[in-house]
Design a protein around this nucleic acid. Sequence first.
DNA 1: TATTGTTATACTCTATAACTATA
DNA 2: TATAGTTATAGAGTATAACAATA
Lengths: 152, 152
Amino acid sequence: MPSPESPESSGRLAEQLLLLTRRLHHAQKHAFRPLGLTPAQSRLLRTVGAHAQRGSAPRMADLARQLEVVPRAVTSLVDALEERGAVRRAQDPANRRVVLIELTDDGRALLGKLRRARQSAAEGILEPLGAEQREELGGLLSALLEQGEGGC
Amino acid sequence: MPSPESPESSGRLAEQLLLLTRRLHHAQKHAFRPLGLTPAQSRLLRTVGAHAQRGSAPRMADLARQLEVVPRAVTSLVDALEERGAVRRAQDPANRRVVLIELTDDGRALLGKLRRARQSAAEGILEPLGAEQREELGGLLSALLEQGEGGC
DNA sequence: TATTGTTATACTCTATAACTATA
DNA sequence: TATAGTTATAGAGTATAACAATA
């Protein structure tokens, strides 16, 4: 029988989450360096790739919402990826204020390499868990992420 | 019946972890601002507090190891906390290279306020989980953190 | 010569605020 | 007037490298 919500536990969970993510970020940083990508750039590129797979090109504002960052942060990341040739900015003919982010062929190739690097970085962190435990963890994280999707 | 380790799942778990921690960091930043503390400073202060509770004062190197950051990073955080009057540097008489970090009375009082702020920030994130699920999550995170404690 | 912590420096990530151009 | 994205700026967090003091 589970005890009632202990307010003390939440602080410890938060600490664990932060430390684990620090390690993950560190692993990604090193795994992505050979590709010339920072973790945040990789995250953006993956998001653009997901849109491209559905045959669409996201707007800057779409990316900001999905990544849960301010639009200004997207500008810098797209700047870096565009300079690297992985994405390109295009104007939406229907609304000339809107900037659409398109994946280039180079970007598509980069995504393939990135996928492997991402997995090896994540695997180094998640290695202690078996398939069943990973599913459990995924479920708990999904439950936590579902709330507050509307932003603050 | 659980399927075997799926390499694809690890990438998704990593993404979830990073997004959740981004929210947590954001919540902490706002919860700690009234106390004049940043999340990293709070984390350091809590670590010093834990040592103090055991009647000991950590060295800079101890803090770097526990926080899993480079010693140089600790210097900046201690600088900030010392300026704020929450901790003070003391020399180890047994080894004059060593700097011991002591909690001041102000620091102790600050830790009390910090504890409440930390809990409210964490609670805002963890609210969807019941006690049983939190225990489950804590167990999984502990399993993940146990490995690689030796640093890289 | 090895260890402890520091000064100096730089980069990543993200934020706020003010501005431009569209609508 | 409201929206989309940008320029300008700043601050948090952390890293590497060179160095001083001590052992």
